[in-house]
Design a protein around this nucleic acid. Sequence first.
RNA 1: GGGCCCGUAGCUCAACGGUAGAGCGGGGGACUCUUAAUCCCUAGGUUCAGGGUUCGAAUCCCUGCGGGCUCACCA
Length: 544
Amino acid sequence: MYWADELAASVEGPQVVNDSKTPSGTVHVGSLRGPVILDVIARALRDRGVPTTLLYGVDDMDPMDAQALLTPDAVDHEMGRPLAHVPDQTGDCHASYARHHAQTFIDIFAGLGIHPDRYYWMSDIYPTGAMDPFIRAALERAQVVRDVYLRVSKVERPAGWLPVQAVCPSCGKVGTTIALDWDGETVRVECRPDYVTWARGCGFDGRISPFGGAAKLYWNLEWAAQWSLFGVTIEPCGKDLATAGGSRDRADAIAREVFDRAPPRNLPYEFLNIGGRKMSTSKGRGAAAHRIVEVLPPEPLRLLFLRPRPNQAIEFDPEGTDAIPRLFDELDRLAAAVAGKPYRGELPPDPERLLAFVQLDPAPPERLAEAAATYRPAFAHLALLAQIPGVDIAARVADEKGAPLAAAEEGTLAERLAAARAWLDAYAPASAVVRVHRDALPPEAAALGEDQRLFLGALALAAGEEDPHGGDAWQGLLFRVAGEAALPAGRAFGAVYLAFLGRPNGPRAGWLLASLEPGFVVGRLRLAAGWHDRARGAGQEAEA
RNA sequence: GGGCCCGUAGCUCAACGGUAGAGCGGGGGACUCUUAAUCCCUAGGUUCAGGGUUCGAAUCCCUGCGGGCUCACCA
């Protein structure tokens, strides 16, 4: 059984599925694994008739602690302030740094078929007072919290430490404050210059009421408080949090011992690594989630996350590899299998469910076969066609299908063609790129045999005499000259590709040559044939 | 040091208790108007090592070795 179905089968009663994210900067592709897993769990629950609520939160009261995306003069002022209070650095009309990065990320969800029932922002929640009971409980049981930190994570807090962080009334920073001396209504707040290394406090020292948004819980407690506030029953989390003695263990213990509640069901999931290494937020082309989405349409992207089990690390290396074409191929193979068409290789367990979860819309089972059977043009082939001038791609694809494309199939074609172009532009390995060497004979042409050179020379002569126009004319000429030279077609075409592309194969040669200026073609043919001395004059003659 | 993941054909990976499979690469073959980036054929690998459970293990358990990520400050 598919893992999400197993999870769905193991719970009772209505479920609240939750995930949240701290928008500390640009969010990369790997972070989409959580939302996709969340969505699939919700779908699996609903498919079993379990009433389900899907929540997605933004922990935007957390302190700004990464200066990479701040302008140098902003660092001193902004570091340590709540992310929701830091101005948007890109100036594109978001209310804050947090809104900018979180919204850019969230905007991807709908396109991926992920539709939480509710988004919540902690900067909205704290002022309502909804967190106050949890702040009070945490303050009352501060000693329990300290014990949990020590027992679960071997972390010892400084003397007098309380599990809340006030927003400094003077400088507005939250990362630099320590709360002390809870008297039942107020805490003493010190905004210390050296409390953390990454931000500098202003030195404020005074008493405040920690309620109504004046203070926030430390993130671990905030997490546990969210579970109580929203009644969360299932919450997956990434392995950075799920590690033994890590944040999740602390939050679980705090839920039980401070907020008197069983923690939600966990589903730890592994990361997605780009090229064998962890992704970097600030560098690395295509690592940003909103950029990958430009190259990978929703279905293959969902497949990337859903094909492996959640606890399996995903290695994804789009740079200069065939990782992206293979993802499309895997999707097509899966669809073919579900549609009852022939396929090769082994299938994952429960292919029907996997394909259903890969679909953008949760389609009823009876429509799955229909969706699976739609014609999907091969990505690698589209990438090739996209590089050949003068090809009517839609007509060619319809030809291959053997019937006119349905509207949905035309959509798939357009989507894949755009993806193929983006892939060629940003990621494709050299072997997938067809490029005419215009300036000089490709070095690879040195491998041309004498028979091939003779053929190219003969082709140049024939072309000069007949001045072929169009792909068909060129293609016919190629075959005829090859036949007259008694050269096997394979060697003849190979010679043309070497002379123009520097590679032994390529797109249909006739149409390739027809797309280039006749003078260039003839000149290049002569050059490749070894007729350097006469190339210039003959080329002019041919052009005349 | 703790946790998780991985170690299967040259490379990338699948199969996850029942006779080891794909893609790419490599090798062989086919083709006069043709998706020459196509089609057909071709992979014999102590499934990292050692032990255990089982009628049966790549698959489950234990140990070891190697690699990756992650936590131990914050989130």
